[in-house]
Nucleic acid binder design. Structure first.
Lengths: 229, 229
DNA sequence: ACCTGAACACCGTTCAAGT
DNA sequence: ACCTGAACACCGTTCAAGT
């Protein structure tokens, strides 16, 4: 049944990680298994263990990819401009593989490029007047918000296989519109917006704006407090 | 070895879900398996299938718990006060089971109590002047931010078993402090803040503040725009 | 209504062995 | 250096059968 006229790509660590990301994109990250990967490479499951210590290391390597493929940062302008650039870079990179984006979070501090990114982010936040604790919380929040934006986008349904997403979404919307309008007027009114996204760019822009706005506002009120004391 | 002088609690759907949440809390959500639960209830794995359709339904039921156990909402004050109350209720409920909190996200619109919460949240946002799309995005963001706050708290390490968390955290911190200070001054300075949280209440307050501040600021600038046109 | 027994198709992983 | 074979201890789940 599974006629693999596979292009016979060489079995390397990078190739494995790439395949794993591809599988996660179309079938969700639960679909990436050692045995499945082996099959796609036309090789014994144990062959993978030469290139990757175990499955955890594979998932880690998948998470690392996002930092290694980060677009270049535009680091001009105010600190909040630069923070926005960080967010946009993250969203850009994570958006390439929504099904695996959540794997990035655990790797920021383990990965070289992730450490660099964190360093510069902490730098801009502390120079803006935030304390070490505040800067750390905000930096963590920035990364997590970026992950959230790409994985939770309305209609992304990252956990379900690509060819079932439509059906799942239709069912979801139907369930909402079937609700009694008297009790759930807002839910019914927002049914479309809650189950689909018809302007990705606007969605991402709004999400990033929301985050940056919060940081700017906190910074302003922190400064005001400091002036008082 | 596993001498189960089990209190022999009755096998019911609620009991199963409760046990599952407890397991996830101390060993991470990967540790909850049908067979493991059966063992703890001193019963055959197949016995569980009478009370729960399959594992997905079990995970869904775990997610539902958070909405069913939501504390009462203080719905007085301005729209942003009420939005803050929603966030605090979510953080409160999710904080009871950090290891399973991520399961809540997929269930908001499927769960009765989740629908209610979404309805009132959308209501307060739209009455504040946000569009249906904006309100939907913000509501989704609010839930996801709450999940993030409890699962990503520095030192929570929700995926690793409780008795290994200390070792993992020590290793993490050691890795950071071992970094060259010239290249990573901020990372080193924030090592403690990045790997541990010494004031949970302050951490949650800051996280909620950050979110609310963002929404308030966006609302202000949206209003200004509307006035112009 | 509620649970068991046996069986199936999957997992990740180890270890010794091949080339 | 890179891969295979055989084996082990786990999964979720079905289906027929018991009480």
């Amino acid at each position: 049944m599974i006629t693999k006229t596979a292009p016979r790509v060489e079995l390397t660590r990078d190739a494995i990680v790439g395949r794993a990301l591809a599988i996660a994109d179309v079938e969700g990250s639960d679909a990436v298994t050692i045995r499945r990967l082996a099959q796609e490479f036309d090789v014994t499951p144990m062959a993978l263990y030469w290139h990757v210590k175990n499955k955890d290391e594979l998932l880690a390597a998948m998470g690392d990819r996002f930092y290694e493929e980060l677009p270049e940062l535009d680091q001009s302008g105010s600190w909040s401009d630069r923070l926005r650039a960080v967010m946009e870079a993250l969203v850009g990179s994570l958006g390439n593989h929504p099904g695996s984006a959540h794997l990035a979070a655990h790797r920021v501090l383990a990965n070289e490029a992730g450490q660099q990114l964190t360093e510069t982010t902490l730098g801009m936040l502390r120079s803006a007047g935030f304390s070490a604790t505040q800067a750390s919380d905000i930096a963590r929040s920035a990364l997590q918000s970026a992950v959230m934006l790409v994985t939770q986008m309305a209609g992304a349904e990252v956990a379900v296989a690509a060819d079932e997403r439509d059906a799942v979404l239709r069912a979801k919307r139907a369930a909402i519109t079937a609700l009694p309008v008297e009790r759930f007027p807002n839910l019914v009114a927002c049914a479309d917006a809650l189950t689909g996204c018809d302007d990705e760019a606007a969605y991402y822009a709004f999400g990033v704006d929301l985050f940056i706005a919060g940081v700017e506002r906190l910074n302003a009120s922190t400064k005001r407090q400091n002036r008082k004391t």
